[in-house]
Amino acid sequence: MLMGEKEGRSASMNKKDMAFSLICIAVSLLFIFWVIPNDVPTSSLSGDIPAAALPTGMMCAILVAGVAVLLEAVSGKKKVQEDEEENDGDKLNPLRFAVILAVLVGYVLALDNIGFYVSTLCFLTLGLYYYNRPRLSLVKTALISLIFLVCVFLLFEKGLVVYMPRGLLF
């Protein structure tokens, strides 16, 4: 890897670390000063600590570690080797992520409202159709999905007597 490339990558990782540490700091502060005091009871047993002590302690640890990551990122002394091992997909496409998230949440919501078999048939068919290049035909993907669902039906509903959620449709 060229030196310039390395520096560029390191800079982008530092930016990412900065964002990550700021999120950690914000979330931990939110929990320490607002969520935990409002949602955790107090203990009156002799010798025992308040029930909020451990959750607060954990959030304090995240706060301290978040500050440490921020300082490392700001000082720019993070090792390049560490950057390389951190992950393989630096570029997060926000639009793609939003679409994937919407589809997944929509699918889970549909399980209870529309029914497991119909929503899974749609999800699988579209998933297989979208991701396969060269494209498989819609009929082929629907057929694969159908065979898969028959196997699920036989294994779970007939074999293990676990009934999948039924919604408006089957």
Binding site: V40, P41, L45, A51, I62, G66, V69, E72
Partner: peptide, 25 residues
């Protein structure tokens, strides 16, 4: 990876394990 990120992972895991009924109260 980073030691501090390992601390974050451990603290977060411990934090989520505290959700639910307080074992003493």
């Amino acid at each position: 990876g980073s030691f501090w990120k390992a601390v974050i992972a451990a603290a977060l895991g411990l934090f989520f394990s505290l959700v639910g009924m307080d074992p003493v109260l």
